[in-house]
Amino acid sequence: MSLEENKAIVRRYREIYNTNQLDQLGEVLAADFTPHTLLPDVPRTLAGIKMVHQGTLAAFPDLRTTTEDLIAEGDKVVERWTQTMTHTGIAMFGAPAGSGKKIKTTGISLYRIASGKIVEHWANMDFVSVLHQIGAMPSPG
């Protein structure tokens, strides 16, 4: 696999999320992938990550992630992303349903790719800023 092919796999992964077509994740995600930063209670399966995404969309139906940069070397691709969402759905992080809060956050994901599929995944996001913007934590300063 070339670096550009690996980047294309990550772009497809992101598109599947943004269009909420997680049934198609099998195209780009290996069945036995290792998600290193998934919440501990969530099953380490496709069903587990679907559950997380549907839960997020239930609170933030317009969730959108934009890939800002891709950095590839060997079998790894790093994605820097920004995310926007509006809290128009169910209650979340202490905010009542439909609070209308607009949230913008950032994150970085790392993917390892083997035989054309993502086999390992790490991600970090600025979750504290989400809690600040939704009002669950006091803002700094």
Partner: peptide
Amino acid sequence: IAEGDRVA
């Protein structure tokens, strides 16, 4: 992970 002028 490095490519071009960036390192992750």
